[in-house]
Design a protein around this nucleic acid. Structure first.
Lengths: 181, 181
DNA sequence: GGTCATGGGTTCAATGACCGAACCTAGCCT
DNA sequence: AGGCTAGGTTCGGTCATTGAACCCATGACC
């Protein structure tokens, strides 16, 4: 095969004229959408992604680099000594929220036994509707006003600190506060 | 690792308590969502999937079987002699439409140069809104009332007959009519 | 009756992605 | 000097994906 120019890791859906295929070329690889989900939940640090996802280190590094290059995450220095970076989700990543939510609803309705997480309008506490709207206020709730609260099906005492931090109700995008024991 | 019972091809996101992860275990493999997309567009036959997707035969057979076992497609005999089957999307598959549409919008807004396809409310011709609603009628349009029309960016004379059949405006779920030359 | 075309597959070797474990590095802290 | 932490890279083994080739039943063509 003769490759012309750069090709993103040989994983293109070559013949497809379709924006779904374009999207899946970017976020269709294994783990990628779960990394974006965690980023929306407020996870920002390499190590937090690692322990929360249980992903191989090499794969995580590859995904973070790709998502950064694609402008879905932004790598930013948060302390100088020792130098440490965090990965913050950008507007382009935030724009994936409707797709992630639709996937999650489908998974819950067709495969999940119990409710794991609930998403509410932070202003009024109303559970979001099927397309992310607040039935009470009649608006599509912006991501930063979505409150994530644990559902009854969630393990109340998980092993890793990131999962523990995500047990507390919190707004999306707000960085998680990992408990220092 | 001790595997208890049957595990779907070693591709589980083991530690994830999350309905997004549950969904991605089912439809997160390469090609799977594109097969479902084609099924929603009205593609039903093995050979039509094959030429439209440009997917390896073995992978297509594996995906069709898995989607059938998961109740997302239904395999049904449509003629006896010679025996021929088609794969028809079920309610569970139709329920993936919001997720596919959200992914497609994201791909279009962030990566596509031109508009490839438009989706309208068949009753009134109005372009659908961001979450699949008809702005004119004020309802979320059911999938069978969505009219798909080609956009300006679509190749007007594609090589394969399935792509040609999809050039004509058509409702979702309606089987495609491949032109017999 | 022999040959070919069609639909729907299976088999195969080669390649590439993913996996877990081990290792590396820089900069602190004691 | 030794150890810890955050953030990686390297490596051998395994598993999935790929394209090409093969198979088989039926019906159409000559």
């Amino acid at each position: 095969m003769v490759t012309v120019g750069v090709m993103a890791l040989g994983k293109d859906y070559a013949t497809q004229e379709c924006s779904i295929a374009r999207a899946l070329e970017i976020v269709g690889e294994r783990w990628t959408l779960l990394v974006v989900r965690d980023a929306l939940y407020g996870v920002r640090r390499y190590n937090d992604f690692l322990v929360h996802l249980g992903i191989p280190r090499a794969v995580l590094a590859a995904r973070l680099q790709m998502l950064t290059e694609e402008g879905i995450l932004e790598k930013r220095r948060y302390q100088e000594s020792p130098p440490r970076d965090e990965y913050v989700v950008t507007d382009r990543g935030i724009a994936l929220w409707p797709a992630l939510r639709a996937l999650g609803r489908w998974g819950r309705e067709h495969y999940a036994e119990t409710v794991l997480r609930l998403f509410q309008h932070a202003e009024c506490g109303t559970e979001l509707g099927s397309y992310g709207e607040c039935p009470a206020c009649g608006i599509v709730v912006p991501v930063e006003d979505v409150l994530m609260v644990p559902g009854p099906g969630l393990d109340p005492d998980p092993a890793n600190p990131v999962s523990r931090a995500l047990l507390r109700p919190k707004r999306l995008l707000q960085p998680i506060a990992v408990d220092q024991v």
